[in-house]
Nucleic acid binder design. Structure first.
Lengths: 168, 168
DNA sequence: GGATTATCGTACGGATCCGAACGATCCGGC
DNA sequence: GCCGGATCGTTCGGATCCGTACGATAATCC
């Protein structure tokens, strides 16, 4: 990763452009690192684990959610996978076409659609997930245990802060 | 945000599916929170700041990079914005169509394309970025100052860990 | 019990998003 | 000089990704 601009260079360049407006550089920096970290981890997991199984990130996440919560209704799957209902429709179409997932109407409430893994989908997850988690573990293991738990807690607070609810 | 499954419930359900394989729940949890936090912050900034200016997340990031580093070559812009060259091509096409950005060939090396903001693009950034940073600040301000600097450092280490380089 | 209201999943349009392949250009050795 | 190899930005195909609008179905009100 060559040729990066230094943090100081960037701040100086920003000040040249924004003038004397008071900016919160610490906040900008923390969130910049947040996105970089998420992208880096996602890329690494995609390249080292998912690609060889011809699986996309979102496809894997959806499969994982349905694996753990068999028969879950689509809107809850979307919420758990952190994607919109519209996106889920397309992803499920792809996974259904590959025979990994099945859609199933609800008897009582005919608006609902429940999702289940096929046996092929289940086998895939039983093979992939341990591998996936091993790479997760490898990445996180480079942090001291105490820092991991601090990170986890702080990130949860960031979620709450961003969603505008100051939890009690 | 109703109807969430508890962390304990999820772990129990996972154990039911993965059997006796040894999983690193702490790592899975930390990274799950990482993606949730990134998505939540991105959504909040998009909804509260960018949408009213008809600007996408990636479009804004690219515009910001070019604003700070005027005349930067496209591959460096892509790297700074954390997107692929192919994606940048499409985003620049959109921004160019709206008169925000201009492409400019390099005299010396005719393979290169340099990017600059138009005056309209510059005005937009001068108007949007302070607003954007204010919301960033509002989110981060809900964390104690010490936690912010710890978070920033830890996230940088996560980036290095994911990219496979244990920096000295 | 009929009309209004709310909620469900989906179709649609448009904007990312990326890996792979590609032509254009530059650079290296010779 | 020149030619094989490296590097540049773009194109292409296919998969997300989302807000909005919609038809179908439930729940509510009176």
């Amino acid at each position: 990763m060559p040729d990066h601009h230094t943090l100081e260079e960037t701040e100086r360049a920003m000040k040249d452009h924004v003038g004397n407006l008071p900016l919160d550089f610490a906040a900008a920096n923390a969130l910049s690192n947040l996105f970089r970290a998420a992208n880096a981890v996602r890329s690494e997991l995609t390249n080292r684990v998912l690609r060889k199984h011809d699986m996309t990130w979102t496809g894997f996440v959806v499969l994982w959610v349905v694996w753990i919560w068999d028969g879950m209704e689509t809107r809850h799957v979307a919420e758990s996978a952190d994607i919109s209902k519209a996106t889920l429709t397309g992803v499920v179409r792809t996974l259904e076409g590959r025979g990994m997932i099945a859609r199933e109407g609800d008897e009582k409430d005919r608006r609902l659609v429940r999702l289940r893994l096929t046996s092929e989908g289940t086998e895939l997850m039983e093979r992939i997930y341990p591998e996936f988690n091993a790479v997760e573990s490898e990445i996180i293991s480079q942090l001291a245990e105490r820092r991991v738990s601090t990170l986890t807690k702080t990130l949860r607070d960031v979620v709450n802060a961003a969603e505008g609810q100051n939890s009690p």
